Simulated scan of single mutants.
Amino acid sequence: MAEPFLIGQDMTGGYGGADILHSCTIAVEKGEIAVIVGPNGAGKSTAMKAVFGMLNLRGGHVKLDGEDITRLSPQARVRKGMGFVPQTHNIFTSMTVEENLEMGAFIRTDDCADTLAQVYDLFPILKQKRLQAAGELSGGQRQQVAVGRALMTQPKVLMLDEPTAGVSPIVMDELFDRIIEVARTGISILMVEQNARQALEIADKGYVLVQGANRFTDTGKALMADPEVRRSFLGG
């Protein structure tokens, strides 16, 4: 059987002390949306960071498009086609919207004007506010800048850590709509999300983590329909 496009297989490790992840496996196919959900402290963001190379694994491996990238730095993974949007401190507040987006193209040597135009098509409000300091934007608009900047690297995989944290339900729905649009272009989306029910509704694949280990893995629809998942993790 062919391997998934991106896979963190049997990942075990933490930040130096006790292990946070215990044989955790997360995978996403090309153009697919995979969502990691679970209770607070379940290791969701840690699993994402492990896939991106932000902690050393004591066990397991990470492969992208068949290539073992377990030992590569996060910077090297960006060059391989991984984009990562952290939950906080993900924009340069004193720089304009457009300068933030241009910073996203730092690894590119070609003309990025077409990609910038695509980002503005995806997030029209950013085009309107392109000369405004990013720090003056609303929370939802800041998240659009952060996602847009990651897209400027032309990633094969876009990784989002709590993209809807602190935004209103209307803004959350709009961000999820944009994420679906990004996936339709063939980019794989791997997302950690606190709003589990809404995230699973748009997910091709869902991972429920508990204490750093896989508890449930299935399609988003199947997890939404699972009585135990609903009762324990989705509020009934």
Rank of each mutant, 00 (worst) to 15 (best):
L57W: 00
L101Q: 03
K205V: 10
G83S: 04
A113C: 08
M11F: 11
T219F: 09
L101C: 04
A134C: 10
L158E: 10
R79W: 06
D218F: 04
A165H: 00
V171F: 08
A165Q: 12
D173K: 15
M103V: 12
G81F: 05
L55G: 00
G31A: 02
Q143K: 14
L21S: 09
A150P: 07
D177V: 08
Q143I: 03
A76V: 03
Q75D: 15
K80C: 05
D173W: 01
V167K: 10
N100W: 02
M152V: 02
G16F: 09
Y120K: 09
M54A: 11
A203G: 07
Q211K: 15
A42N: 03
Q194P: 02
L160N: 11
L126E: 08
L72F: 10
D10V: 10
E102H: 08
M103T: 11
M54G: 08
F233I: 00
T109W: 10
D110C: 03
I36C: 05
G16R: 09
D68H: 04
I26K: 13
K129P: 00
L72M: 14
T185C: 07
V119D: 06
H61K: 11
V229W: 05
L101H: 03
P227M: 03
V145D: 15
F84V: 02
G53N: 04
R130F: 01
T153V: 14
V35I: 13
V119M: 08
F106Y: 15
H89K: 13
T185G: 07
I187C: 12
Q211A: 15
L57V: 01
D204C: 05
T46L: 03
L151G: 08
K129E: 10
H22M: 06
A213R: 15
M48D: 04
P39Q: 07
E162P: 04
E98Y: 00
R58I: 01
Q141R: 02
G220T: 00
L131Y: 14
A105C: 02
V167D: 06
N195M: 05
K221S: 13
E3Q: 13
L122E: 04
K205H: 14
D111T: 02
R149Y: 04
K44I: 01
A27R: 11
G66Q: 06
L200H: 05
L137W: 11
I20R: 10
R142L: 10
